[in-house]
Design a binder for these strands. Structure first.
Lengths: 167, 167
DNA sequence: TTAAACTTTCAAAAATTATTGAAAGTTTAT
DNA sequence: ATAAACTTTCAATAATTTTTGAAAGTTTAA
């Protein structure tokens, strides 16, 4: 496998993996491309490399920036903007954890709280609803704590800590 | 909020959350419904409760069974099959971790290995590709170890262990 | 063996999501 | 102030994914 094959395979794989996790293909592929690019890329560069339109590129770059994992940079004397990915995979993990917590876990916790707080009326179905949503609430809270922990630690904490647990 | 409102809200929320994580809405909703149902439900029950077609119900129940989080049961003297969810949220977590590891992490690891093993040719782009895919490989391996750990421990390990980390 | 009760399959339709591209918007240099 | 260089927006279109429903398949009882 040569460089080009490897690069394409990586971008392709990252794209499908993204899809599997609810991230659109273009967004995942742009991210993959920036992650392995030694230099920041312009919008033109991204469009050419991935064969996607200007509009698509613009929107997905924006989303990546919103997620806090891609940055805008500019080259001295150039008008265009250049884009670079966060390169440290631990930083990346932290940032994604932070965002998923904020966007998904927090709102879910709120709803699980509401649902599990309905009045107990003695019926089996109400009991079960309360019991299960409480259990999920507890689980989600634990997951959230872990994520917040990750977010507030230095990069290598993740690996170090888990390695201790694993061996 | 009464029982019916709470139930609908929970099913609705679980459905959207599923969508966000690449799980189709019907599948997530069927799972939610079974999770809070004190009794196993027939296909008819599920169809009526969620207003989805027979075909859709059948296919998604099958997928849930493939994921190992829903079981078929039968009632004595009855022809129909009944379906029940795994109720223990820790078991559920373990089973989902097991499947995601098998279906997603393992294949990704394999490709990251291949890609990161291309010949170093001294160019900056090859260097970066190798460096970043190696880093991702290491990260994915760590994630996989954690998941395997989860899978092989008793239900409460998750909470207990993480609680120690968190406080 | 037949038929009723039930489940699965799958091609077609519907719904959703992603993508395009051109017009509108913005920024910067002169 | 103008225009070139560049980016963003968004309505239209395309692609993908989900859902339907009826036919085919299966199982069980008699």
């Amino acid at each position: 496998m040569n460089y080009t094959e490897a690069k394409d395979k990586f971008i392709q794989t990252w794209g499908s993996l993204g899809t599997l996790w609810g991230i659109n293909k273009a967004m995942a592929q742009i991210h993959a491309l920036l992650l392995i690019s030694p230099e920041p890329l312009s919008m033109e560069d991204v469009m050419e490399e991935l064969h996607i339109s200007r509009g698509n590129t613009s929107m997905n770059l924006r989303q990546l920036i919103d997620w806090g994992i891609v940055y805008k940079t500019s080259k001295a004397g150039e008008r265009k903007e250049y884009f670079a990915s966060e390169k440290d995979v631990h930083e990346l993990t932290k940032q994604i954890a932070r965002e998923r917590s904020r966007r998904e876990i927090q709102p879910t916790l709120k709803i699980l709280k509401e649902v599990s707080s309905i009045d107990e009326d003695g019926s089996a179905k109400t009991k079960e609803l309360i019991k299960q949503t409480k259990a999920l609430h507890e689980l989600a809270e634990t997951a959230d704590s872990i994520m917040n922990r990750l977010v507030n630690q230095e990069s290598n904490w993740i690996t170090k800590t888990f390695m201790k647990l694993i061996k």
